[in-house]
Write a protein that binds this DNA or RNA. Sequence first.
DNA 1: AACATGACGGTAG
DNA 2: TCTACCGCCATGT
Length: 121
Amino acid sequence: MRKRRSSPTGADGLFAERVFAIVRQIPPGRVTTYGRIARAAGARRSARMVGWLLHHAPPDVAAVAHRVVNRHGDLTGGWAWGHPAVMRALLEHEGVTFVDEFRVDLARHLWDPQSDLDDDA
DNA sequence: AACATGACGGTAG
DNA sequence: TCTACCGCCATGT
């Protein structure tokens, strides 16, 4: 039964692949959290792994990784772009509003990977 | 093998 | 609202 591991980087690839697929589905102008992604992907490694995976994500995923923030909406991974201001600029460019210098308005832009049935539609 | 660290999250004070 | 502590999993030293 559920004996996975034995592979680096969640390398079954299952969890990682799952996370990357979800991130790629985040619609522009929307944001989601590490925890939401972890939960939608079957968070066995916890949300911390999501952040770790994003740091090791392929170019196509990194291209939309700015839409992933922590549970408070803070741009904790902003330094991956050299400075959080860069990440903020990318989000604002998509219409995302902020409630603080580096905190997005989750109440208004939060997107849940398990609820991709709403919004736009 | 052990300890410290990290793009996190939840609960408790 | 903010700080502190614990749990989770992989990496680097």
